[in-house]
């Protein structure tokens, strides 16, 4: 049975709508508010207003494996070093949420993963501490330095900080992503990434999709558009430059190794080949979220009249 590729992709987007997980979303918002209040209380005048910086803020979230990213911008004089800032925020959050969440050091953030609640919901919020470059400059330029934590030490991992403008990153993608089609394609690729456990970071996907829309005439049906983007990635991922909208000096393409780029190119090639060959294959790469079936038809035992079963053999 052939599958209508574009209709299926639309169904994929429908079943992955963030609004389907309203309860989980509300819980994230409420936990985020708790954290913002706590940070404000703890750091007082040393901190500017924390803000959402993840996919939810960028309007590209899907309802599977989503989390919140919370940017915590600190003043220049709050800490003498970025490491001190990072460790201070880690210590504070670890102390505060001990016993109710796993708190761990991540690359530029501190991850808080709350234990599952009565509904089995797991709330995940990453707090990204950043410090303005010069005293009182943040309100004007929005630029921040992020500390890069590495369990292997800074020699192995290169520089120990990233200078960026997270607000610019968010608004770049949010503004771009307000182009409706582009947002759909980003979400579809996120669905692919999540269901197939793929390596590329969401940020990488967002930037390369924007690049594809810039370079190619992405139009036609939803599958036509997705295919143009997949082919663009297939042909260009190994060489493309993706500069960070928050700091043109940062090369986001470097966040993916050459090997991972080759794998991603192969991935794209396989999707296009297989889906062109047999429309049903689209379901493997872009599955529906079966937690939210399209038609909520209930199963039943069916029938129910008088029956006489035939002679029957069991093994």
């Amino acid at each position: 049975m052939a599958t209508d590729r574009s209709k299926h992709l639309n169904d994929v987007l429908t079943t992955h709508k963030i609004s389907k997980e309203q309860a989980l979303l509300d819980k994230h918002k409420s936990k985020r508010d708790d954290i913002v209040t706590a940070l404000n209380e703890e750091y007082g005048t040393d901190i500017y207003s924390p803000f959402n910086s993840g996919s939810y803020a960028k309007n590209t979230a899907v309802n599977k494996k989503f989390d919140f990213d919370l940017m915590a911008p600190f003043k220049r004089n709050a800490f003498s070093t970025l490491k001190e800032m990072y460790e201070s925020v880690y210590d504070f959050l670890n102390e505060k949420y001990q016993g109710t969440a796993y708190v761990r050091r991540q690359k530029v953030s501190i991850g808080i993963e709350f234990y599952a609640d009565g509904d089995g919901h797991v709330i995940k919020i990453d707090v990204v501490p950043g410090r303005e470059l010069n005293k009182d400059q943040y309100p004007e330029d929005r630029k921040l330095n992020l500390y890069v934590y590495s369990q292997f030490g800074k020699i192995a991992e290169g520089s120990d900080y990233i200078r960026t403008n997270v607000s610019a990153q968010v608004s770049n993608i949010r503004d771009n992503a307000n182009r409706n089609d582009l947002r759909k394609i980003i979400r579809l690729l996120k669905v692919w990434k999540i269901h197939n456990n793929k390596v590329p970071k969401s940020f990488f996907i967002e930037l390369i999709v924007i690049k594809a829309f810039d370079k190619k005439n992405v139009s036609g049906s939803l599958w036509d558009m997705l295919k143009i983007v997949l082919e663009y990635i297939r042909d260009n991922v190994k060489t493309v430059s993706l500069s960070d909208p928050g700091n043109t000096g940062n090369e986001v393409a470097d966040s993916l190794s050459d090997w991972d780029k080759t794998v991603m190119s192969d991935d794209m090639a396989n999707i296009v080949k297989r889906v062109d060959e047999n429309s049903d294959n689209i379901k493997l790469y872009f599955p529906l979220n079966d937690k939210f079936p399209l038609n909520d038809q209930k199963n039943s035992y069916g029938g129910g009249g008088f029956s006489v079963p035939p002679v029957t053999r069991f093994g």
């Binding site: 069916g302 029956s307 079963p309 035939p310 069991f314 093994g315």
Partner: peptide, 23 residues
Amino acid sequence: PSYTDLNALKEIVASDAVSIDHP
């Protein structure tokens, strides 16, 4: 369930004298 068991259920449902769909 063995293969034979699965087949048995298939045949039961297919039988004209049986009105239930999901034994």
